[in-house]
């Protein structure tokens, strides 16, 4: 029986209106349709670069990413699109239904777009769990790496106005996930979150500064020397305002 693999966290990227650099999209094939889609592609490009995986990024065109998967958390980011599509159907009947808009009403449309742009050919998973979606994406992505299914997984979240990603990898790096945990009951020191972006911010702060939070859902991360850099992400299913 082989040992469970360690899951390394290789950088984190947040893209929103304030830091979005459109030029990164020029390298990618295909047109983009909506704002959060562009943010997501830029965030993936950035995290691949930060992680020293630029070769993978450049190699996308050659379709070299068979061992790379994606697990994306979404909340209500496609709901505006859904409302627009269905509004047209209500007003105009069948003729109002746009075949161009409909595919974007599917929650996995964003992950699909990322797989096409970066030729990601491993597992392609979208998690819809409200504000907890990002954490659950990290948790599932970690399972894929530690069980040896994939060498690397882009995990991320897309919310209204922002996309955030990190790369989980079996390839050794600076920080690794010590534990992923999820409990339904609230614990002491709970940090209640109302958006996925908040949980990502806690993760990024921890990677940057070793911040610490207590709670009932999240992950703990250690540095390469095995020292806890002191983070857990927190919230409780029952308390999340999605």
């Amino acid at each position: 029986m082989e040992e469970v693999k360690k899951v390394y966290l290789k950088g984190a990227a947040l893209v929103n209106e304030d830091n979005f650099d459109e030029s990164v999209l020029n390298k990618l094939a295909g047109r983009t349709v909506f704002r959060e889609e562009r943010f997501l592609l830029a965030a993936i490009a950035e995290v691949l670069e930060i992680s020293g995986e630029a070769a993978g990024f450049e190699g996308a065109a050659a379709g070299n990413n068979a061992d790379l998967g994606i697990v994306l958390g979404v909340d209500t980011v496609v709901d505006g699109w859904k409302a627009g599509f269905f509004g047209e159907v209500i007003e105009d009947g069948p003729i109002g239904a746009s075949p161009l808009a409909f595919p974007y009403t599917s929650p996995n449309a964003l992950a699909a777009r990322a797989t096409i742009a970066f030729k990601i050919k491993g597992d392609d998973i979208t998690i819809s769990s409200g504000a907890l979606s990002f954490l659950k994406a990290v948790s599932y992505g970690a399972l894929l790496v530690e069980s040896g299914v994939l060498e690397g997984v882009i995990v991320g979240g897309v919310a209204e106005g922002a996309a955030f990603t990190t790369l989980l990898s079996a390839e050794p790096g600076e920080n690794y996930i010590t534990e992923v945990f999820e409990r339904r009951a609230a614990g002491d020191g709970l940090v209640q979150i109302s958006t996925m972006a908040e949980s990502f911010a806690i993760l990024r702060d921890a990677l940057d500064e070793g911040a610490s939070h207590g709670g009932s859902t999240g992950l703990r991360v250690s540095d390469s020397a095995g020292n806890m850099i002191g983070m857990t992400l927190a919230c409780s299913i029952g308390q999340v305002v999605a």
Binding site: S106, I127, K136, R184, I237
Partner: peptide, 17 residues
Amino acid sequence: LMEEYGLRGQVRTFSDA
């Protein structure tokens, strides 16, 4: 479902078409 049955554990929703 968790609420009605008083279940404990992890819940995950997959939306992969």
